[in-house]
Amino acid sequence: MDLARRMLAGDRRALARLITLVDDGDPGVADVMREIHPHTGKAHVIGLTGPPGAGKSTLVWALASAYRRRGRQVGIVAIDPTSPFSGGAVLGDRVRMPQDAPSGVFFRSMASRGQLGGTSRSVRGVVHLLDSFGKDVVLIETVGAGQSDVAVRSLAHTTVVVSVPGLGDDIQMLKAGILEIADVYVVNKADREGADRTAAQLASMIEVGRESALAVGQQPDEGWIPPIVRTVALKGENVDQLADALDAHRAYLLQSGRWEHIVRSQAEAELEEALLVRLEQVLAASSVASQKEHLISDIAARKLDAYQAADALLAMLRARA
């Protein structure tokens, strides 16, 4: 595909166009992924999640600036809530991008399209595009939906959970399981009252989690204890310290062999996603779609249950093969 070749040659407009095609689910996306696949696998993908109001967007841009000062090429994917009217991202590129945005950063906001997990279904493809374009670091900012933001773990090598003093949702995050996915914890807006308490709560929760794992016979990862970094992203305070922690985690993953384990897990998730896409395409074929509509009616009329209907569709697909 000509766009893919132009993008691999460094054409930013071609990259932007390809991201749009991926986000729209264009039928030619599979050919694009096939062409760029050998050029992927180099970028450090970092996911940032946490409650709304934690300052994730400001932190992402401060972190991008820190990496640019280190000579890294940076890509940013910001996942936003979906507009119920247009189907697009509620917050657009120009709203999210600061006026003093660093050069050498490619930014794109995307709609979550109602996907659970705080991420858009097409994010993985966009990450591959940014990776093949030569970005050393790709930052993914999730929608900040709280409990469902754990899906970023299947996209990122390193996951950052951002908290903030005064929101009162530390316990809720613990219940939701968000804290368990973090490789690095951030207490942002650390110049506020209550920052010490929030950091202490996080440290206590980390220790409780390790003890709980041991109690049920699980062995916690002794090679990496998630650090707690206090930042004031608006002022750029301690953002370099956060970048150091993220680089240290990447080095740990590579040295311990965990990097390969994560890549394999991500490949498994990607294969499952591709299988679902192919199945949806097959089910959209006219003859199958007609039978599917009849089966839906039978389920609604209580003539069949969903599993019986699924078996009937699969039998039809096998007969067509």
Rank of each mutant, 00 (worst) to 15 (best):
Q147T: 09
R153K: 08
L167C: 06
V216R: 07
H128K: 13
T198K: 06
V138A: 02
L179W: 02
F107M: 08
K175C: 04
I206K: 05
T159C: 04
D191V: 02
G117M: 07
V162K: 10
I171M: 12
E193L: 08
Q219A: 11
A195V: 03
V137G: 04
D191E: 07
I171N: 11
Y185L: 01
A195I: 10
V152M: 02
G217N: 02
I206V: 11
E222D: 10
A199C: 00
Q201C: 15
D183M: 00
G177R: 07
A156T: 11
M110V: 15
L202V: 00
L130T: 05
V160C: 01
S212V: 04
G117R: 10
G117I: 06
V123E: 03
G118R: 01
T159V: 14
S122Y: 10
V187C: 04
A190Y: 14
M173N: 11
V123M: 00
R210H: 14
S204P: 06
T159E: 05
G146T: 06
V162W: 10
V184I: 01
S154K: 07
D131W: 15
D170G: 13
G166E: 06
V160Q: 01
E222G: 00
M205Q: 06
S148M: 05
A203H: 13
G114N: 03
V187S: 05
P165W: 01
G134I: 00
V187D: 00
Q201F: 12
L129R: 06
K189S: 10
S109R: 08
L214K: 10
V137E: 10
G194V: 06
V150I: 12
A200Y: 15
L167G: 15
I181K: 04
D169H: 06
G134F: 06
M205W: 12
V216Q: 05
G117W: 15
S112W: 13
A199I: 02
G118N: 02
A151K: 06
Q218I: 09
S154Y: 03
E193F: 14
R121C: 03
A190F: 07
T198I: 01
A190L: 00
A199R: 03
V186T: 00
L116C: 01
D136G: 04
I206S: 02
D196P: 09
S132V: 11
L116D: 08
Q201S: 15
F107R: 08
D131A: 04
L130A: 07
V162A: 08
G168K: 09
E141T: 11
Y185M: 04
V127H: 05
S154Q: 01
V161K: 01
H157A: 02
G194S: 05
G209S: 06
S120F: 07
R210D: 14
